[in-house]
Amino acid sequence: MNVIEVQGLKKDYPLGKTIVHALRGIDFSVEEGAFLSIVGPSGSGKTTLLNIIGCIDHPTAGRVRIHDQEISELNDKQITDLRLHRIGFIFQSFNLIPVLNVWENVEFPLLLMKDKRKEEIAARVERLIRAVGLLDYMAHKPAELSGGQRQRVAIARALVGNPDIVLADEPTANLDSETSESILKLMRELNEAERTTFIFSTHDPEVLKYAGKIVKIKDGMIVGQE
């Protein structure tokens, strides 16, 4: 079954008097439980594509379906809810909330869901913090963590709400190669353990070792799939 289906996706950015065609017609689908990597050179449109799939950006043309739900039919409140419940984000620069400690950062999406009981939240948060190996750092603020640790927190946060898809835009770009490797390993493990679909972008060939499926894009178009 496909979690995501993308058809004829186009994205134009007006830039002064000209128009940048960031995506020029993308068709692809992602199966449930996939560990998909989007590769391409800088400026090829990876971020743009992930943002649109992640429902934080709108395409200029084309359709995105998540779990057979056509995104363009939803209003902002519904889309926000969809992001909360179905999508997890991992950002290149971690984007943790600086005033919250590790536990609170991970807990954040669950609190937003409003329908979770306290014990349920605590159990889930603890499980994920354990899974990313940060049990000893629960009370630390992001500023007190290393880059790799921060990204682990971000991974825990992305997964805590039990989303269908986790989107990671160059999750390892700000990390050294050793840490990158451990992060990718962790993502892969979680992908297998939780059966969560992972889509991550990268331009680092090293990273590709871990990928399941690979989609190559260039100049806003898919140039190959493996």
Binding site: D76, D81, R83, F89, F91, N95, R157
Partner: peptide, 16 residues
């Protein structure tokens, strides 16, 4: 701003 973007992406409603 980036924090706002983050919490919006994670799924916090505008109202909140």
């Amino acid at each position: 701003t980036r924090e706002i973007g983050t919490i919006r992406a994670i799924g916090m409603q505008k109202r909140d």
